[in-house]
Write a protein that binds this DNA or RNA. Sequence first.
RNA 1: GGAGAAAUGGCAGAGCGGUCGAAUGCACUGGUCUUGAAAACCAGCGUACCGCAAGGUACCGGGGGUUCGAAUCCCUCUUUCUCCGCCA
Length: 422
Amino acid sequence: MIQLPFLRENKELIKERYAKRQLDAASTIDQILSLDDQRRSTQQEMDDQLAEANKMAKKIGDLFKSGNAAEGNQLREKSKGLKDSANALKESLRKIEEEQIELLYQLPNIPQDKVPAGKSDTDNEIIYTEGIPANFDHEALPHWELANKYGLIDFETGVKITGAGFPLYQGKGARLQRALINFFLDEAEKAGYQEVIPPHLVNEASGIGTGQLPDKEGQMYHVTEDELYLIPTAEVPITNIYRDEIVKAESFPIKKCGYTPCFRREAGSYGKDVRGLNRLHQFDKVEIVQITHPKESGKALEGMIEHVKGLLQKLGLHYRIALLCGGDLGFAAAITYDFEVFSAAQEKWLEVSSVSNFETYQANRLKLRFKNEAGKTELAHTLNGSALALPRILAAILENNQTADGITIPEVLVPYTGFDKI
RNA sequence: GGAGAAAUGGCAGAGCGGUCGAAUGCACUGGUCUUGAAAACCAGCGUACCGCAAGGUACCGGGGGUUCGAAUCCCUCUUUCUCCGCCA
């Protein structure tokens, strides 16, 4: 959520930056600011009345204590309705604040200056490419055919058990999956991230904290019986560790990583892109999260990018990095880099990681603060990135590493799989 | 799921309906003392909103109520602990 004082003072800059997102929020912003004026004057008035009532109450107490009951009773009669008007003001203040926060929730994060303006992913800037597409002297099969051919994944049985988008990994397929998880976690720990295993269901407050609610309500599986949501990413529970916390500045940067399954309804995204592992309702992911001093978040983002690059390099995958344009930028992000691996048989780029700096946007919702050098509480910055999302990595490994008679396992994974070929 | 007890500042732990934003201890920060450190002593030490400021307001798990006045009384929800039941 945008910080209100910042909005007050930088409304022109914000409108300008929103243009990168193809967003015209002028009327929302003006509404928020006019509500803010109302809010402040209403509170001032209410505070004055409460102060008056407090003063009277104190006086009455003193009168009774000094035995002056007659005057006390008299004053008490006078005080009777005093709080009523304050209560009325309190009610209208509550309404104003509610309305204001609802509008504030509608404002996405402010894109950083270097974020390119643009409508959709075609306006993203490819800033880095590594590797070359695999070259085959045989027919290249898409991963779902390879998975079937070698008995790695049983999509049909997944459909029987649950439905489409819930694959059943088995045998070497399951083992390879587990190998990737362990590899990613080990690499993250080497990079200084502390591993956590968070809950896989979260409450509403956590969803609001990281920005999934109320914005992306329909994307999460909702357990209505208990008002809980299945996590769409480990970002939600891990970042929410620090909701309503004032952390010590010395603890920066806070670095956490965690493996979790991720659940996404993917409502409205049916079509040919959903074949095989390309788009699932349940998938595995290792996430890295950082909480930093505002001055350090840029550097932290660089570090996370380097980390993800290292993973893809070690796996020997052909990949590229895109700086997302404003129109493709997530709601809560100020800047995002997407990592895409080339899937050699499908001949297309698959997004496998998204690394973002949220600056104070999430922190403001989370009330995640620290004490700065001047001893004042200040919002921290939050960042996260996939390191990595498994299914598309698996798809790329299967497709890129296929030979006429099997699939070669990347060397770094062999200690984890226990086999070097499928 | 049933019965009971509890929830107060970073932690521990007081708190009679008015003088309580809240005793006290520990921790922490600054100072005095010391060659240095420790000890001792002095001072400071929650969060948010409004205000240029002085100051004001709110918050003692959440919400509501009684009252001129609530940390203190009542209702409700949540959480924790103990006991019973069920169960991986």
